[in-house]
Amino acid sequence: MNDDLIIRMQDVTKVYKSGSVELEALSGLNLSIAAGEMISIIGASGSGKSTLMNLMGCLDVPSRGLYEFGGREVAKLNPEELADLRNRSIGFVFQAFHLLPHATARENVEMPLLFAGMPAKKRRERALAMLGKVGLGARAEHLPTQLSGGEMQRVAIARALANGPRVILADEPTGNLDSRSGKGILALFHQLHREGVTIILITHDLQLARTCSRIVELRDGRLVHDGADLPPAPTEVDEDEGGFGERAAG
């Protein structure tokens, strides 16, 4: 099992500095995630969920402590190596989709393939295959503005899958969707999980979290629960102001 660890965090601390004020967004976190897991990370606004996601996604490096992704210590990689790591091993799904508005669904999915250096013809085939996988084969040449919210998120998932990543990191993937589209996206994640992709869902939606086999809860930058069930005590998840307060805290 230990050989199969894809994410290993030991005593990870992340400190943000704003002028003279220091804010410890994560303190002394220990977390290991094995390949093939489907895990949800929950917590209230400002609990450190987003910070954790940024670290796990190699978008940022810890201030202290050890973080290994697939056995490589992330802090020792330069920006280009980090970019390559993100490109090949991690697929991001954002709450706000972040699709290029003037590019078609196919072109959006091709983008990580382009950065991986894949030739044009293969890119096209691969992108169409990925779009087929998320059920959008027929809409490959549509622009994001011509797609529904659920469809846009499917395009984003297809883009995340393009390079065959080991991990999919999804940050509130259903946050901007109606409940029906949200269910569809969740079903898609479960399907991918069955196919062996490691899925990490960052959410404050307990319904969503409950469908995962492992649930991790953060509170004030510390890990307070790690288990197969929801934490026994009522959590302070704030459904209403969700993402916004969290962002302000970084």
């Binding site: 996604g57 970019a83 390559d84 490109n87 991001f92 972040h98 990580p112």
Partner: peptide
């Protein structure tokens, strides 16, 4: 800027 951020997240090198 956001587009740039997205590209970098999915693996674009700075030079790209």
């Amino acid at each position: 800027t956001r587009e740039i951020g997205m590209q970098m997240a999915i693996g674009a090198h700075r030079r790209a």
